[in-house]
Design a protein around this nucleic acid. Structure first.
Length: 433
RNA sequence: GCGGAUUUAGCUCAGUUGGUUAGAGCGCUGGUUUGUGGUACCAGAUGUCGUGAGUUCGAGUCUCAUAAUCCGCCCCA
């Protein structure tokens, strides 16, 4: 048999996995900093539950199978499981409910650059009953902003828009019946030439004049304040449009109020998101110098999370970071710093096997002091032990030999600087910690 | 679901018009007289040339089939 890992599934060596896990930890920590509570849901659900909300392509991409009498499926995102979760436990939850979830999701699509069949999504959502304050739309921005800053990634921008603005505009043009198709096309405007854009609108049976108006509309650019001013100057009386505009203004001003650098947020009227359940604010995040990564974090506001599962209304807003893709692209572009093959901070080596007891005792002491440490027990030349220490990139090396044993102390070597000194146990713990 | 490309050592790849025992760099193992790594030098191991069939005196090289992988489109993180 041939041994291989399935295509579209990421598998890492320890050096990379350590960095991946650190990123995950930074994301989780930041989510908690903003008061989001962790939840976890099963990878498998009843197929009916997962497919209830989907339309079109989701069904083709979902992994599903029969086990006994149960028709099961693997989750393809964390939002539908959340909808189920809220429907099940809303009487036990306190609203507004802020939750985060970091987990793997599964999509049986064709793998290619930046596309995996199994990947981590790092989701946050804020859910409330009946009404959800628009301020949370700004808070979501603050979370993305903080996470990306803490991850020390390249310069990024969060592009935002409000779907009500575009759908209201379409209503004012009296072409609202084509909204879904038009939004999907608008989403592609950066990828296709303007002529093709107009051509496709024409193919939908829309009149040329309105298509040009639409193109000019989504091309409105400038600073956030300039775009808002231009939108106001259009004097469109459509209610949807005006509501969207007001929401967008609030989100921008509250984002500033939350301390976000305004350079990192850009209104872009062509951002619509493909998924149809978004109803207000929508987000996409790109790196300024790496647009080919695609959106590494996106999401938006939806009117009713659990509509398919229950009658009650639960509006929410949320985003998701595609961690697997993010990691993959950063690694391919040498944007990650890899530290070493081990989480250990210290490695103990001995001059000869007779000092093994001392070494083993020492790592016990270090571990009790919360210092991850190990001893090299393989009986080999001293030089080999040094090479091993070097290869795993251990920060601190501790040497025990005749002299150290006689004086009841240790040689501590900083492997980065090469400096070494003779220290007592107490000094050693202090220095390494 | 549609289209394009690739497949030779652990990795990245070379292999001229088909011609004996298939190569390089990196990595790996060992050594340069045994209490000090990263550099340098020396030595060594590793391939059913994706798989199956065909053409040929002879195939890594040509033909066909098949599989896997990668890249676009669709959709999306």
């Amino acid at each position: 048999m041939t041994v291989r890992t399935l295509q579209g599934f990421m598998e890492l060596l320890p050096e990379e996995q350590i960095v991946m896990n650190k990123m995950k930890a930074v994301i989780a920590h930041t989510y908690e900093l903003f008061g989001f509570a962790p939840i976890d849901t099963p990878v498998l659900e009843l197929a009916d539950v997962l497919l209830s909300k989907s339309g079109g392509d989701t069904e083709k991409q979902i992994y599903e199978f029969q086990k006994g009498d149960n028709h099961l499926a693997m989750r393809f995102d964390l939002t539908v499981p959340l909808a189920k979760y809220v429907a099940l436990y809303h009487n036990n939850l306190t609203f507004p409910f802020k939750r985060y979830q970091i987990g793997k999701v599964y999509r049986g699509e064709r793998p290619q650059k930046g596309r995996f069949r199994e990947f981590y999504q790092c989701d946050i959502d804020i859910i409330d009953r009946d009404e959800l304050s628009i301020v949370y739309d700004a808070e979501v921005l603050a979370v993305i902003y903080t996470v990306f800053n803490k991850l020390e990634l390249p310069a990024f921008k969060i592009y935002i828009n409000n779907r009500k603005i575009l759908s209201g505009f379409l209503e004012s043009l009296e072409i609202a019946d084509k909204t879904v198709d038009v939004l999907r096309l608008v989403d592609k405007i950066k990828k296709i030439p303007e002529a093709a854009f107009l051509g496709e609108l024409g193919d939908m049976g829309l009149p040329e004049e309105k298509n040009k108006e639409l193109l000019n509309f989504i091309k409105i650019n400038g600073s956030n304040q300039e775009i808002i001013a231009k939108l106001e100057d259009l004097n469109i009386s459509n209610e949807n449009f005006q509501n969207g505009l007001e929401e967008l203004k609030t989100v921008i001003s509250q984002a500033q109020n939350l301390g976000i650098n305004s350079d990192n947020i850009q209104i872009d009227l062509s951002i619509t998101r493909g998924l149809d359940y978004y109803t207000g604010t929508v987000y996409e995040t790109f790196f300024d110098d790496y647009p080919q990564f695609g959106s590494v974090c996106s999401g938006g506001r939806y009117d009713n999370l659990s509509s398919v599962f229950m009658d009650k209304k639960f509006p929410g807003v949320g985003i998701s970071i595609g961690l697997t893709r993010l990691f993959d692209q950063l690694r391919d572009n040498n944007l990650l710093k890899f530290g070493g093959l081990t989480p250990n901070k210290a490695l103990v080596i001995t001059q000869s096997p007779e000092f093994a007891d001392k070494a083993i005792h020492l790592i016990g002491q270090l571990r009790q002091n919360d210092i991850p440490a190990d001893v090299m027990l393989r009986d080999c030349k001293f030089k080999k032990k040094m090479e091993y220490a070097n290869k795993i990139k251990i920060p601190y090396l501790i040497i025990i030999g005749e002299d150290e044993a006689a004086n009841n102390n240790y040689t501590l070597k900083n492997m980065t600087t090469g400096e070494q000194s003779r220290v007592t146990l107490e000094e050693l713990i202090k220095l390494v910690k």
